[in-house]
Amino acid sequence: MDINNKVLDNPIDALMTITLTVNGEKIDIQTASTEKLVNILREQLNFVGTKISCGIGRCGACSVLIDNELVNACFVMAYQVNGKSITTIEGLGGVTVDEVQEAFLTEGGFQCGYCTSGMIMAVKYLLALNPNPSESDIKEALAGNLCRCTGYGGIIRSVQSLAAKKIGI
């Protein structure tokens, strides 16, 4: 199945205006009501840190937070995010990098980096809910994010280093 083509089958979709908050900034945009959020972010708003890989909710490369919930941005449409607040990889950190980003740097949680934006969002979400995740917690939380390069070793070490820090090991 390739639902990338779904919208294309019906390109003359009604335009609507939606209001989003992206990384703290309020934005009004005109878009087809069925446009996927990942395309809105990447193509209309130029937040290309969010990646696209499968387009069908199976890889997590497009993971973002919508009202603090982890969501695949290829799996939600414009009309579903009207009025919502979205955090992308560009919304983390500030002057310095966020602690999850820092952990990925020091533990080698990435190689090509293409899964990394989504992976970091998923780790952020995991640690926000559970600062000291067990092996099975990590597995459950990151099961939706594929990484073809690392074999997950560096990602696991990144998460565990943060968990260890939190509980002061």
Partner: peptide, 15 residues
């Protein structure tokens, strides 16, 4: 840290 690291973890790297 690898030279391309920062740009990768911040999503700033343009593929």
């Amino acid at each position: 840290v690898r030279p391309d690291g920062l740009s990768k973890v911040t999503g700033a790297l343009k593929y």
